[in-house]
Structure formats: C-alpha cells, structure tokens
Design a protein around this nucleic acid. Structure first.
Lengths: 169, 169
DNA sequence: GGCGGCTATGTTACTCTATAACCTATCATC
DNA sequence: GATGATAGGTTATAGAGTAACATAGCCGCC
C-alpha cells in the first residue's frame, strides 16, 4: 500500500468524503436547490472512488448498493445537477466524472490524469487560467469555460517507472 | 470581415487544403509510413471542412463522395493513423477531429472552440505548454500529452453578440 | 384539505460513438 | 511467386448519452 497516489496519500479518506458531502449539503441549502437522496448517493459514490467514474459504472454501483436499479437518464440527470452546482467535474478524455474539492469557489477544470493508476489530480492555478484567458483574448476570443487535461504519470507511478512501463508497454 | 477568426481569415482555402495534403504526403514519405488512398481521403475531407468533424459525419461524407461505403472500424483506423502521425487532432469535448496545420513540429493540443460557429482555432503557445509542464512537475507529475480545450465565442461571433446570445440563450 | 403547478424520478426506446474479432486483400522483399 | 506484414472489409456488440412521455412527491394557496 505504499504506492498510493499523491491525492490519495496520507489522508483519512472517510473524513474527506464526509467533509465533501457536508460541504455539498451546505452549498445546496444556501442556494435553495435540492440535494436529493439520489443526487447525494451519486456524489457519495463518486467521492468514495476518488477516481474518475463513468456514468455506467456508477449505474452498476447504484444497482449493487441498494436494490435501486436506475436507468441511464436517471444517472445523467443526477450528474447534470452535480455539474451545474459545480460539485463534480467532467473529464472529457475519459468520459468520466470526479468530485470537486472546492465547489464554492468558481474555477476552471484543470486536471493531471495518470495513465497508470487512473487518478485525476485537480490543479488550483488561477494564474494558469488567467494566462489562458490572455492568450485567447489576443486572438479576439471570449473564454467561457476551460478544460485542461494533462495525461502522464503521477509521482507514485513514475517512481515505479520500470514496472509501470512493463505493465503498460 | 475584420473579425474573421485567425485560423480562417484571408486565406485561399483550396490552397490551404492542397498545402496540408502535400505536407502530409511528404511527411509520410519521410517517415516510411503509408498514406493510402483512404487515409488521404479522410484527411482531405477533414481539411475541406475546416471545422471539427465527427467520425460518423465523415463516414457519410465518404459514402457520398465515392460509392465507397465504409464501416466504423475503417474510419476509426484511418483516424488512428492520422492521429499517430500528428496530422490531425482529436477534440474531446466534441468527439471530433480536425486537421493539424503544423504536423512536423511536435506540439500539444491547445484549442479555442467557438460554441456559436463551431470553429476550432489551434493555438501555438510553447510557453503555455512549458508553464503547464512546470505546474505538473511541481506536483511530481510527468507530462506526456496535454489537451486544452477552451470554449467560448470567437471574434466573429462575439462581434454579433446580441444576435448570437439570442440565438443561443 | 384538496387543487394546481413544479420539480424529480421512472421507463422505454433510440441515437451516437467506438471497439472486438475475424477474415480478406494488397504490398514488399527475398 | 511464396512469405510475412500491413491495410482494409464485415459483423456484431459495447459504451455513452438523450428524447419523449409517464408517474410520483413537494409546495403553496385559496
């Protein structure tokens, strides 16, 4: 267990999940939107995994967790809600979703994605956002959303380069 | 016409297509890889459009162009080849493909994508690439590929803001 | 309290995107 | 012209996402 990815290392995961869920509850309360059972459960599953999760994987997990068996539209609606509220991000390159650790502050979607262990590390780099906006403005382009998805090897997996490389030739 | 997006402004489109195709031929020749009829035709269709093009749209265009009717795997294999050679880029947020104007120089995939007219403008900002690599390194992350997809309004469409906004509200 | 409207979820069916697996044709070289 | 390698054809299916319509729960209000 010593090769746990950064974002997952040295933290009480249960605590981090319950924090995220509590923050979500407060945020929805404050905004007057309804964090229903289903939406909360989807958010919880996403946080439990701590890795980008596809909509269909999520469906299976829901089916296992309860006896509740949900169809695609149900999951996608929950995901849409969570996206709108900024509680999760979508990773386009993976067609997957991951929890946002700071849903209250408006920010862009910038991720480091490890091809070996699958973890997605969210960056918090306002200067980078600004630089991108600046580059766009030079081209006369008005930015609305940014999606930066950097693929490679995380610190842990890069540490085991030989093995990783062999596993993923 | 002064608000024409960079990538499309003031250029002889036929010339720009034939240039791209000729460059592709040379590049493949130099690398000893085969730019077959099919691959060339796919690349040509992509360049003719000058906007990100989905694989299935491409299939229809192929069916119309010739009597040749191809199945999905055929198109995807051609696209995979073109991607490997750096002749096209994939726009994840659109599930679509677009020609690369500078396939010979290794570079990352950075795009401005207009939600109104659908154009995708490729950025050429090595400093931005470097900054991203730096940020990643600070997190112990070894970058392999970058995908930056910025959505918003291009100069042209932003110029018609009132109309665009109404159309897309 | 029951009516009416609103929001959330359930259900069915379908579209779009992508790949697996296997088979055939073409090319390249000896 | 046999042989191996690469490219393309074919069938079927997996994976991702949405349209359209039905139902259920919630809220306010007269």
């Amino acid at each position: 267990m010593e090769h746990t990815p950064i974002a997952c290392s040295h933290h009480d995961h249960n605590h981090c999940i319950s924090d995220a869920l509590e923050a979500a509850r407060q945020l929805c309360l404050g905004r007057g939107v309804r964090l229903t059972d289903l939406r909360l459960q989807v958010l919880e599953l996403i946080w439990q995994n701590h890795k980008p999760l596809g909509a269909y994987t999520l469906m299976e997990m829901l089916a296992k967790a309860n006896t509740r068996r949900v169809a695609p539209p149900t999951v996608y609606r929950a995901l849409d809600f969570l996206l709108e509220q900024g509680l999760i991000h979508r990773i386009n390159v993976l067609n997957a979703f991951i929890g946002c650790p700071s849903p209250t502050t408006k920010h862009q979607s910038h991720f480091l994605i490890c091809r070996a262990c699958g973890i997605a590390i969210e960056l918090n780099q306002p200067e980078l956002s600004q630089q991108i906006i600046g580059v766009a403005r030079d081209a006369g382009f008005a930015v609305e959303t940014q999606s930066l998805e950097v693929s490679g090897l995380c610190a842990n997996c890069a540490g085991n380069t030989e093995h990783s490389e062999h596993r993923h030739e």
